Amino acid sequence: MSDEQVLHNSKLIFLIPCTYVFVIWFIYWVEIQFQFNFNKFGVYPRDLVGLRGIFFTHFIHSDTNHLFNNSIPLFVLLSSLFYFYKQVAYKVLCYGGLLTGLLTWMIAREPYHIGASGIVYLLFSFVFFSGIIRKHYRLVALSLIIIFLYGSMVWYVLPIKDGMSWEGHLSGFLVGFIFAVFYRKIGITKKEYQFSTTDFDLLFDENGNFSPPKIEQEVEEGQVNDKE
């Protein structure tokens, strides 16, 4: 790979995370600046109009605290996704985001559900389980780092805090796990090593028993062996 390709890939790794974080902050700024309320564009469960929320919910936030809490994990997890899983990164982000919104629409309570938390849990789940499933040392190390940084998030897939869309968290977590299993053979995987056969290996049979090769004695034509 040339230096230009490496530089291009490095820029791309951070371009998507930076763009996503910028967009959600810009949308929130528009709400504040022009006194809009985009909450009605979130997911409203089991309602046809509320179905539009599966496209928009991941960009809408209720306040700066909500926005800030999602921004840092989004940047870290998106960067990890596009660096280690670039072959499937767009599919995980786009298809996974839509499925997370759809599952939230199906199982959630009636109030509007907004925020990028579903994407955060989708990425957290995908990155963590992908490393464990693939058993590649670099990816396993990444999984351990992710669980160290954000492991406490797992508790919020349960209804333990009022005013929090645990359904969105659970949806993202489940979709991330499914995608980790589905894409487990694409990208970096554990290498299966094949060892070459040596002369020493020929001394043993397929069951591991010692079996030296038989030495055939050739009797030259016209040669007589006398034994007294």
Rank of each mutant, 00 (worst) to 15 (best):
S2I: 11
L7D: 08
S10H: 08
K11C: 15
K11V: 15
P17I: 01
T19C: 11
V23F: 10
I24P: 11
W25H: 15
W25A: 12
W29Y: 15
E31C: 11
F34P: 02
F34I: 04
F36H: 15
N39K: 09
N39L: 09
F41V: 01
F41I: 01
V43R: 04
V43K: 02
P45F: 03
R46C: 02
R52V: 15
G53K: 13
H61C: 03
D63P: 14
T64S: 10
H66C: 01
H66S: 10
P73R: 01
L74A: 05
F75I: 02
L78Y: 04
S80A: 09
Y83M: 00
F84S: 08
F84I: 11
F84Q: 10
Y85P: 00
Q87I: 07
A89D: 01
Y90S: 08
L93W: 00
L98M: 11
L102S: 01
M106P: 03
A108W: 00
A108C: 01
E110P: 06
Y112A: 06
I114E: 03
S117R: 08
I119G: 00
I119E: 02
I119F: 02
V120Q: 09
F124H: 13
F124N: 15
S125Y: 00
S125P: 03
S125K: 04
S125G: 14
S130N: 08
G131C: 09
I132E: 04
I133M: 14
H136G: 02
L139F: 00
L142Y: 02
L144E: 04
I145L: 05
I145H: 04
I147Q: 11
I147E: 03
I147Y: 04
M153C: 10
V154G: 08
Y156V: 03
Y156M: 04
I160E: 07
K161T: 11
K161R: 10
D162V: 07
M164T: 13
S165V: 08
W166N: 01
E167K: 04
H169D: 00
H169R: 02
L170M: 14
F179G: 13
F179C: 14
A180G: 12
A180K: 02
V181H: 06
T189A: 03
T189S: 03
K191M: 07
K191V: 10
Y193V: 14
S196Y: 12
S196G: 10
D199R: 06
D201I: 04
L202S: 14
L203D: 03
D205W: 07
E206T: 10
N209G: 02
F210E: 14
S211K: 07
S211E: 11
P213T: 13
Q217V: 12
Q217H: 12
G222E: 15
G222N: 15
N225Y: 05
D226V: 09
K227P: 06
